[in-house]
Amino acid sequence: MTVPLTAPAAALVGDMAQGSDEERAWRRRTVAPSDIAAITGTSPFQTIGELRRSRLGDDRREPLRRSDQAGLGQPRQPMLEEWFIQRFPQYRAHTTGYWFSTERDWQRVQPRRALIAADRADGPAPLLAALTFHTTPKTLTDAGWGPDGSTQIPADRYDQHQ
């Protein structure tokens, strides 16, 4: 069942093919949460200079510094969604596309899943939260996932999710 999603300060743009001219143009004129780490200088993946060049139309990117991790979690997203919903049955998850802020049209987000109330049967459903996925090549332990093995959230991830 497809449920139209609504959000008080955001509008759904929809899906765009990754790497398409439309998607590259959209990315050039907007800022995503993952860009914040480059802007603040905490990203291990991209400098502010690289971000600036991509916004000016130079789409030729240098290879990822940690290319072994690119797309690592994509195949796991359905399993992670199921894990989340089993633990939080008050939500229902929907795969979603790009959104932009209606207050700041330069601000975009592409959450992996939009969360709505599980008891929502039909009609427009207010988006309650977004569910995103981040994976790591190492198994997480009680020690944590910080840069030094601590429970400290890595600075780039903290910047991205504020």
Rank of each mutant, 00 (worst) to 15 (best):
L12F: 06
L128D: 06
L140A: 12
G146F: 05
A9W: 09
V109G: 01
L127T: 11
T42D: 08
R104P: 00
Q18M: 10
R53V: 02
W145S: 07
D58S: 12
A17V: 14
P147W: 05
E103G: 12
A93I: 03
R157W: 09
F133K: 02
Q74F: 13
I85N: 01
E62F: 01
P8S: 14
G123W: 06
S54M: 14
A17I: 13
P126Q: 11
R157S: 07
A38Q: 06
L72M: 13
R27N: 06
T136L: 15
T151Y: 00
Q90P: 00
P4V: 03
R28W: 04
D105I: 11
S34H: 14
Q69F: 13
R61G: 06
A11M: 09
R120K: 11
S20A: 07
A129Y: 07
H161K: 14
M1R: 14
T42S: 15
V3H: 09
D59K: 00
D15L: 05
T47H: 03
W83K: 05
T132A: 13
L140E: 02
G73Y: 13
M79R: 14
D21W: 01
P63I: 12
Q69P: 02
W145A: 10
Q162L: 14
Q107S: 10
L127K: 00
F88G: 03
I85H: 05
T136N: 14
P124M: 02
T135A: 15
R29M: 09
A17Q: 12
D68R: 07
R52D: 08
D156C: 04
L131D: 01
T95L: 06
A38T: 06
E103N: 11
S150F: 11
D21T: 12
G71D: 01
I153H: 04
L72W: 06
I48L: 09
I36R: 08
D21S: 10
P147A: 13
T96N: 05
G14L: 04
F84R: 07
G146C: 03
R104L: 12
S43M: 10
A10G: 08
P126G: 06
I48W: 00
I85Q: 07
W99I: 09
V13L: 14
P111H: 00
T30F: 08
P89S: 07
Q110P: 00
A130F: 07
Y158M: 14
Q74N: 13
R61K: 14
G123F: 05
S20F: 00
K138L: 13
T135N: 10
P124K: 02
T40E: 05
I39V: 15
Q74V: 15
G49D: 10
H94M: 01
Q77A: 00
P147T: 11
P75K: 03
P147M: 12
H161R: 15
E82M: 11
Y91L: 04
R53F: 05
Q69G: 14
T135V: 15
S101L: 07
R108A: 10
P89Y: 06
L56A: 07
A37I: 04
R65Q: 09
A118Q: 08
R65T: 07
R92Q: 07
T47N: 01
P124T: 04
R76P: 00
T42Q: 04
V13P: 01
W99N: 08
Q77G: 01
